[in-house]
Structure formats: C-alpha cells, structure tokens
Design a protein around this nucleic acid. Structure first.
Lengths: 249, 249
DNA sequence: CAGTGGTCTAGACCACTTA
DNA sequence: AAGTGGTCTAGACCACTGA
C-alpha cells in the first residue's frame, strides 16, 4: 500500500496510518473530479483491492470522511461524494433562522453582479493577488417574505470564470450548488467571524431597518476540499426576528 | 450482552447496536459518578470482559464518546472522563476571541451573586417550575485588560445548592470547572442563539461603550451529559476589537 | 437475488507510558 | 517489562437496496 501510495503521489515515504493515506488518496480523486459530487464511489471491497489494504481499513477511511461530510454513506446503496444538490447539505452552512417557526430555506435575489479586480482587502481574504480578476455580488435573502440578510460576496475568477446570475429574480438554486454544478467547486468548510455592527444607508434601505440599527455581521471564508479559498462573504443580518444558531458539543 | 444490559437497565429489550448500548452504559456510570471527571476508565479489555463483548465493540463505543468530547483517550495511558479542569477543554466553550492576538483565557470578576426564585422566563429556559430556587450571577469578563463580555447567569439551586463566589476579585477558576468540582455537574453541550442588540445603561457602564452601542448577544443553554439544563447564560459582548468565532466543516 | 454498507468478533503487531 | 490505546487484518453475519 505504501508503495502504491508512493507511485500515485510521487515518492515521499509516508509513515502515517494506512487509513489516513487511503482517505487522502480518495480525497485527491474527488478533488480531481474522478468521482463527481453525488456520484457513487466504488464499493469498500473494490477500493480495498485497488489500494491493496483490507476492507476494514477502507471502511475506517470512509467513516472518517463521512464524519466530515465529505461523503455520504447509505446502507444497501453505496458511498456517495457529498453534494450541495442534496437536501441533507442544504442547512449545513445556513445558521440564520427565524426565532419562531422551523427551518426554511431563504429566498435569494441578486441585486447586482459584476466583474472587478481584487482590492487589497479582497486579495488578502481570498488569498489571491492585488488586481486579480474577481466577481462581486450583492444579494438579498428573505425569509418568510421578510428581508433578513444582505450579502456582499466575492469569488475569484480564476476558479469561477464568467460567473453570472440573473438580477432581481428569485435564484432557484443554492449558490454553493451553482458553484458545484458550473465549476465543480465544492465548498467543504467555512470559517465565520461574527460581530455586532450598525446598519449603513445601504443595509437600512434593503433590510428595512433604521440607519445605525444593530445588525449581526457574519464574515465568512469558504474553502474547498483542498483548503483553497473559493469565496469571501460578508453578510449583515437583521436579528430582530431571526437569530444565528450555534451548537457546541 | 443484551442480557447484561437488561440486567443493568431494567428489562426492556434493546435492539440497538451493541456498541451503542455499551456507550450508554458507560455514560450512565459517568453521570452517576462511578468514574469522576478526570479519572481513568477501566481498560478496553476489562470493560469488554465485564460487558461480555469484544474489545473492538468497546473501542467503537469509546471512540464515539471521544468524538463527542465525553472522554479523552491517551495512548499508553488510558481513557479518561472528560473534565473542564483540563487545558484541552478550556476553549471548547469559549468562542469570543480578540481580533488580533491568539487565544487567551478572559479574566472573570463577579459583580453580584444572589439567590432568587425563577421568574417565568428563567423557568422556561431552565426547564424548572416558576418560583423554583435559582442563583443569579452578574459577571464581567476582560480580555487583555479590556472589559469585553457582561454575563447574566442563572443556575438552578436544585442542581447547585448554596452556590456562591467571591465578589469583585478575579475568579481564578473557570465557572464550568467550579460546577464540576463542587457539584459534579459536567457541562457537556451548549446551544447558543446569537443576535445583535443595543447596549442598555448597565451594558454601557460595565463594557465602556456608549448607550445603544451595538453588542453581540449570546444566549446559551448549557446541558449535562443527560441533557438536563444546568445553566442559562445571557452574554453581551463588545465586538469592536473582539469577535465570535465559528467553524463549519 | 446479488451487492452494498453496518455490526461484531478474534487476534496480531505497534507505539507509547509508567514503573 | 507490563499495560495501555492505535492500527490492521480476516471473516462472519445482518439489514437494506434495487434489479
């Protein structure tokens, strides 16, 4: 197995546990698009034969991946590459919910979308160079008819060329599902920084709050399976009737 | 094993996987204080013999518990009941951090502490009856010398009788470590609801912000291993130079 | 029915800690 | 050296899915 790993990854002996090596080999193939989101992986037995390890070792690798939402396992059916086009994943990155009433997907409308070049802050946050091509997006999300979240989104053109969306109309698909379908870019992880801020004129107009009203700001960096930054998103939320939900366990 | 489980839990056949039954048996003993926080559990082999299952099944149960931070496993040493008196656990429930500069434990000072009876809201949040005895606590936390978090904390007297703390002085120990040491109450899980609010007079005075300044409010319900609510905490944070950090993966 | 993942077992060897 | 958890294997049987 170590030999096989070497053959595929370029020398460099690897003394980590076999299951960790197997996990990374599978992950690499997912990143390369050998198996696309939503598709089935080969069975544990086939993977074990291919990698020259026991089925139990493959199982441990896949269980670890399932724990990180990288694959989904279904008894009797198989193991599938995680996808945002899937009910399961819909709410994983959505933490803003109504105070009363259950989970419900917000309705999203694009206010503006246009190509630009990364300013200093965008370059820093996206990990690209100053002046690199990006797409800037302003989006309003409403929950149960009420405007709740105003989002300023920046994506690097290098990863998502010619990114465009219809303006004004309801966007039928989740943004991360669109990244995935159009570009094969899979958001696997996000880091969020939350602060309380005051509404500026733009916030106030779109969210229907008074100027300087308190808003919850969510600053999110989204990364793919490789850890590459694929989006910077700055959301401002009216939390009078909604909240950000977090569980620690 | 199913028979043994029955013998210990009172009839009721259990068709769940063995490892899940083993996990719950171990969890119950931890809740009952058979093994106290920080203490070592018997080895996998001993537990396997006692429960009449294989070592692999006990391992799967303990691995699942370790994944939920209920136990800590150390190669060559043993498996230990999780404790808040432990560097590892210190930051698990602390999500408010300085924007610049690494993690650092806040300094906590009690402003007031007094017994009371649960009002309607407290009873609802704590899951106790209106008028039940509680202890109310007002606490200020400073990070790098700056006041950052003002906390209103309510704990049920039923779980933590005669709860008291010195006022004004720096509290040397974490509150959850105190719950654990004094009462054997282990906080295992918390649900947080975040909103942006405006500072009232009390907030403004203690946090050094102007009246109506935007603050991040963190409303937390803390539960023990059994899911019993052990604390309601309403924190208001000045997020001008600090933030609430959240990772989604 | 064949094929998949889920559970459970038994045993081997390794890495690490403690004495 | 003895005891612990960590890794890896092999094989059995079960529960579930879909043709």
């Amino acid at each position: 197995m170590v030999e096989q790993a070497r053959a595929q990854t370029e020398a460099a002996p690897d003394f980590r546990p076999l299951y960790a090596q197997v996990r990374d080999l599978i992950l690499r193939r997912v990143v390369q698009g050998v198996w696309r989101p939503g598709e089935a992986l080969p069975s544990e037995q086939r993977l074990a034969e291919e990698f020259g390890v026991s089925q139990g070792t493959v199982r441990k690798a896949l269980d670890a991946m399932a724990a990180q939402n990288q694959v989904v396992r279904e008894q009797g059916r198989g193991t599938f590459v995680a996808t945002h086009r899937d009910q399961r994943a819909q709410f994983h990155f959505l933490h803003v919910l109504p105070d009363l009433g259950g989970k419900q997907m917000p309705v999203s409308r694009v206010l503006s979308i246009r190509p630009a070049t990364a300013n200093r802050e965008e370059a820093r946050r996206l990990g690209c160079r100053l002046g690199d091509a990006v797409t800037r997006l302003l989006r309003l999300r409403t929950i149960e008819g009420k405007p709740v979240i105003l989002e300023r989104i920046v994506v690097p053109t290098a990863l998502m060329p010619d990114f465009d969306l219809p303006i004004g109309r309801e966007t039928p698909e989740e943004l991360y599902a669109i990244y995935e379908r159009r570009y094969g870019v899979v958001v696997a992880r996000a880091e969020e920084v939350l602060k309380a801020v005051t509404a500026d004129r733009t916030d106030a107009r779109h969210l229907g709050v008074v100027f300087a009203a308190p808003l919850l700001q969510v600053d999110r960096i989204a990364r793919n399976l490789d850890g590459i930054t694929v989006e910077w998103r700055l959301s401002r939320c009216d939390t009078r009737n909604h909240h950000y939900s977090s569980v620690i366990e």
